[in-house]
Design a protein around this nucleic acid. Structure first.
Lengths: 274, 274
DNA sequence: GAGTGGTCTAGACCACCTA
DNA sequence: AGGTGGTCTAGACCACTCC
């Protein structure tokens, strides 16, 4: 954080960077961002520390406030820093990730009553819980019907919407689809049933025991709607996991989409080579 | 794309939004962004289509150019749109994902000579290939040593850096760590060995057959360095996968970090419930 | 009330692309 | 040459937070 008054502009705002190569880091906003990034990476600015204010940076570097602001935005987009309205800009703290393992469906957890999500939360001194947002009968999208191999004749599914919390933070948005023929007349329509994996006890009684799972994983930026649901800070991607349960007859019988905030949660797969 | 000249400012730039509630979408930049987002979502603006220029938008909405620009930035950060210098701002096209499956280490692919990465590329009419960036002997980080259970006495590892391409796009940056005691004297130091999974043939000859894998998956925004390596457009997160190979004696013997651009690649796990 | 980030104005010059 | 996005200036008022 040196470089006091490195003004390189003439009075009209005409820049002197004309002779520089195109992708130069000579741009004032990049220079400010680079200096701050380095201060963060070397530990000069520790997680949680406040950066100089935009007005201070502008003064130190002899630029307009907007230029300092642009530098902050670069760091924000990298996820290094988070601005808080009226308070300042702070170096982001990293949390250890709550990892959802593929063993979460294992029978070894069935008796404990605790789902691996709750176990992982507990490991990190957090309180896990979830809320049921909705339970409905609905027509599945083409994608859902395809994964569940639903015939055209009977395309109705049960849809459960849940949100998982770690302490106060919503971390997963979970949507589960079950063919109506399987869900019909069971406790699955009852919000009281502990969704996370309690539903699989019910599904076993209906003759579907999970013998395999198939999960496709991708990452993307959240939709505006997801930013609201999950209270996402800027520059936090989501993991988008499509989970399919396969029963003893090699038939899919349950599909769940997990949208997970990626700065607090991750995945873990431990599997044999076949 | 209606709203011509919706000017709501007095001469000094004083806004009339004082009486609005805080998080209002009444802000001019949000209004422009919302209109454009809707046009994209309804298909009025198809993938690949050019948006009105910043100056056009500013004129249409009666705002300064910077305000239209801010709207574009909001959409850019959502990954909906991509600005191209000198050409315009375009609605992003989505590619089908190349999925790396956990079966990529399966013996069934060993004979075919094709790695699943190459197979997936071929499925989508793309040409897969990879380049060896470097092969070195080095001291592992604490994290690498911990995963490979390296004793303090002999902490040296072989490090291979690779980049995978789909057509011209670099999509994975792959770093492999193998304990030096295992790698020593083998063909692993030779860049000619087809890395992807060819190294596992060599490791088998050294007495390590993969019987399990353990992969932890997370997503995050790329570091500036990764943005350069992978030629990442804005608002594209990376999948960060730490793969550990476990041999027939339940010992880890190979660790690989995959950094994958998430708009072109994903993961797929198909595993039994244990 | 003083300080902070958030949004906006109305200009300017630059680098890049296309014709 | 003319249009596009990229960066910057030097101001302004707003909303929020903390004292």
């Amino acid at each position: 954080m040196s470089h006091p008054v490195a003004c390189c502009y003439l009075k009209t705002g005409r820049a002197l960077m004309s002779t520089q190569r195109p992708d130069a880091r000579q741009l004032p906003s990049r220079r400010i961002a680079d200096d701050l990034r380095q201060a963060i990476e070397t530990g000069e600015l520790l997680p949680g520390a406040r950066l100089p204010s935009e007005r201070e940076l502008a003064g130190q570097y002899g630029t307009a406030r907007n230029t300092a602001r642009e530098a902050i935005r670069l760091l924000t987009d990298e996820g290094l820093v988070i601005p808080e309205h009226g308070r300042g800009v702070f170096v982001r703290r990293e949390s250890p990730l709550i990892r959802l393992g593929n063993d979460r469906y294992s029978h070894k957890y069935r008796e404990s009553g605790l789902s691996p999500f709750l176990l992982e939360c507990a490991k990190q001194g957090k309180t896990g819980r979830f809320e049921v947002l909705s339970i409905d009968q609905a027509q599945p999208s083409a994608e859902v019907a395809r994964h569940l191999r639903l015939p055209m004749s009977e395309p109705s599914v049960l849809v459960r919407e849940n949100v998982f919390y770690a302490d106060q933070d919503p971390v997963h948005r979970v949507t589960t689809y079950i063919p109506w023929t399987i869900a019909e007349g069971t406790g699955l329509l009852n919000p009281e049933v502990g969704h996370p994996y309690g539903i699989h006890g019910i599904l076993e009684e209906r003759g579907h025991t999970m013998t395999r799972l198939r999960e496709s994983v991708s990452a993307r930026m959240p939709k505006p709607e997801e930013t609201r649901y999950l209270h996402l800070p800027p520059a936090v991607p989501v993991l988008d996991v499509l989970h399919l349960s396969i029963d003893q007859d090699h038939n899919p019988y349950e599909l769940t989409r997990f949208v997970m905030r990626a700065d607090l949660t991750g995945l873990l797969y431990d599997t044999p080579i076949e």
